[in-house]
Amino acid sequence: METGTRAVDKLTKLLSKSRPEHCYQCGKCTSGCPAALHTEFRPRDILIMAQLGMTEELLKSKLIWMCITCFTCLDVCPRDVEPTEFMITLRNLAALRGIIPTVYRGEGSAILETGLAFRIPESRVKMRERYGLPPLPRVDAEPVRRLLKSVDFDKLIQRGEKK
């Protein structure tokens, strides 16, 4: 297993400008993290795991998907580590390996089908009618689909899926 900064370097140079190797474990990211307040997600733990070369464990972990990308940690980090960016990097790497939580697969296919990340339920449409609100604007999903297919997004979200 590769450890220390070399493993980290390999990881980060791929996709983002985050620098987990700069982290000195002060815990400021974690104490300000709204996700950490309610889950076992600890940005500081993720960063030290990366420094220890525990890349495999991280990519398989549910924890990396718990970040809500609010960027509070990025604002307060005294070492410019940019933890949010790092979480996004890890997710991208995990997705390439086909490790994608079901809920995100659903979201991905929703974008492909409707052009929106959120499928608007029929009940919502009816509710709008009931309150006399104008109908929602129609979304043309075709350009979105074309764009995503050009980068093989449709194949990516099926990767590793258990049939």
Binding site: Q25, C26, G27, T30, S31, G32, A36, L37, R42, R44, D45
Partner: peptide, 12 residues
Amino acid sequence: VIIENTETGEIL
């Protein structure tokens, strides 16, 4: 004061 005790992982 909001802080993580980094020795225990507890958010205080």
